[in-house]
């Protein structure tokens, strides 16, 4: 405890010095007014966590003096928010919008309306999540194979919940797993939710049998006391900490990895200065020594990318997703 407090004090001090120095060095870039992080989902989901992470890390590192506000704009796993930013709120220097790998997947499929990845300016990636399959704590399934057997036996008896509809990343995870198991993915019974949080609620209520979600929000819910259990994590190796108890999909015989980038973008007409401000602010936040703990709390892994590097990575990811999606015949022209 005292170590942490000390560390925090050190970080805070360091952060303040860094900020002053930065301000002093650059002199010009001012903090935009009314900093707002839009989580394009209902509260409690992955986007909420992402925004809260930004809120905490920016404040902790001193990159932002004003406390960032988190607001919610659910709809289409970010589609509505994306369209709103691009359509109506093109130049709000204080507004950043959370995105995830799932958003990119939907964007690759043309589900964000008429816009593509170039319509916004990708600012930073603050970490990476991994896909997970979550069941109720009292579920009879102990492994992905159990689930697949159940689906094979009677496809309509297994209700698979996911944030996002067909083609979303959650659906994709289920489809890839089914493919690997030799199950016809089109036979899966699938219920879409706006976000992982809603799926978890439904899972607890017994309205779905499994949620294809993310480690971040799922473990977060479990930590919060929800009677849920991770069935598998779609990562290359087991994760650290308490997550080390959860087997990977690969271990269970399903060679599928699903990392989920979590980051932010700003409107297309935000000025370069504001854009740079945000990029630098995140750099600072992620460089802060206290950042790792923030990640760990949220069951996320580090993936610090900003600015140009992030834009390039995003474009690459979108292209990859597009190929994957067209393999499933999902790309809308």
């Amino acid at each position: 405890m005292s170590t942490i407090t000390l560390r925090r004090a050190a970080y805070a001090a360091g952060g303040a010095i860094a900020l002053t120095l930065t301000l002093g060095i650059t002199g010009a870039v001012a903090e935009p007014a009314n900093p707002e992080c839009i989580a394009p989902a209902q509260p409690g989901g992955g986007f909420d966590i992402t925004c809260k992470l930004a809120q905490a890390s920016l404040a902790q590192s001193g990159a932002l003096t004003e406390m960032m506000r988190v607001s919610y704009m659910p709809g289409g796993i970010g589609a509505v928010a994306f369209n709103t930013i691009v359509g109506q709120r093109r130049n709000e220097p204080g507004t950043i919008v959370a995105f995830s790998g799932g958003s990119l997947l939907n964007l690759a499929q043309g589900k964000f309306g008429e816009y593509d990845a170039d319509a916004v300016r990708w600012v930073a990636s603050t970490g990476t999540d991994y896909g997970a399959a979550v069941v109720a704590a009292d579920s009879p399934w102990q492994s992905l194979s159990d689930m697949m057997e159940a689906i094979k036996a009677d496809p309509t008896s297994v209700i698979i919940g996911a944030g996002g509809t067909i083609g979303s990343q959650d659906w994709m995870k289920a489809a890839l797993t089914a493919q690997a198991a030799g199950v016809d993915h089109t036979a899966m019974r699938f219920v879409a939710f706006e976000g992982g949080g809603e799926c978890a609620t439904a899972l607890q209520g017994g309205h779905v049998n499994v949620c294809m979600g993310d480690v971040g929000e799922s473990q977060g819910a479990i930590d919060g006391g929800a009677p849920l259990r991770l069935l598998a994590i779609y990562s290359a190796e087991r994760l650290n900490g308490s997550l080390a108890e959860v087997p990977t999909a690969k271990e269970q015989g399903y060679d599928i990895e699903w990392p989920i980038m979590r980051g932010f973008y700003v409107g297309p007409e935000v000025s370069d200065e504001d854009y740079t401000f945000w990029a630098q602010a995140f750099e600072k936040a992620m460089a802060d020594p206290g950042y790792a703990a923030l990640l760990e709390e949220r069951n996320l892994q580090p993936l610090p990318l900003t600015g140009e590097e992030l834009q390039a990575t995003v474009a690459e990811r979108v292209a990859t997703y597009r190929e994957l999606a067209s393999g499933f015949g999902l790309v809308q022209e």
Partner: peptide
Amino acid sequence: STDDGLVEIGDAL
């Protein structure tokens, strides 16, 4: 769902 296809929740099939 919305008629522009952006939002869809529920039994997708």
